[in-house]
Design a protein around this nucleic acid. Structure first.
Lengths: 116, 116
DNA sequence: CAGGATCCTATTAGATACTG
DNA sequence: CAGTATCTAATAGGATCCTG
């Protein structure tokens, strides 16, 4: 496939849109080991507010990547887990993680060189 | 590595930050076949303004992923190409592209099901 | 605990016009 | 053509309070 075709394809745009939301990939990755409750996700991820986490989960749910499971009662207990489709995204996300571990220091070095 | 460690690592955050800017991955991908001039990139990508393209290129340059080469004269001729570091990112980006081609239709189906 | 409703701020990108 | 300046609209995200 050509670069042009790739960029023009709406599915490719879709993939980029998924990535363009800061927390999408982070939350998906945090769910890799199985369903989690919101409070657990917040602890695990760190630095994400309740509101933003909820919005992110709704977005992922809307895109068919995450499913919500409510175990009724009080206090409420809700879990979010990856769908089959969501699990297929773990591999590409993992590829980025691997890249970050391999080359992250080079990026940081470039940043310091550029700003100093 | 554990999920916690992955998420806490600043290099991982870095990777996610790279992705969180809408056009970063698109522009990197558009440069995969070799250096391009800004006007060529705009045509190839489509839907990106001169200003946003310039900002994106500066950002990528700052992160050591892209390098600028000016061939002086009038009219000015400038080319942007991937650095060695930038080229290492093509593989993970390609993984996402492949995912989009394989599963993009499922995401779109989920969106329609959710909104309808 | 889950998560909705508000308010507020910083950032982004798009449009346009202009300079060298 | 390359790139900047300016203005504006949209949005993400943070903080906070409140409800079931």
């Amino acid at each position: 496939m050509t670069t042009d075709a790739f960029l023009a394809d709406c599915r490719a745009r879709l993939a980029f849109d998924l990535l363009s939301h800061t927390w999408n990939a982070v939350v998906l990755w945090a769910l890799r080991d199985g369903p989690r409750r919101p409070v657990e996700l917040r602890e695990q991820i760190g630095g994400i507010s309740s509101k933003v986490l909820t919005e992110t989960l709704r977005r992922l749910q809307f895109n068919g990547l995450v499913e919500r499971q409510a175990h009724g009662g009080a206090p409420p207990r809700v879990e979010y887990g990856l769908t089959a489709l969501g699990r297929t995204l773990l591999e590409p996300i993992g590829a980025f993680g691997a890249w970050a571990f391999a080359h992250g220091d080079e990026v940081m070095a470039a940043q310091e060189a550029g700003s100093g």
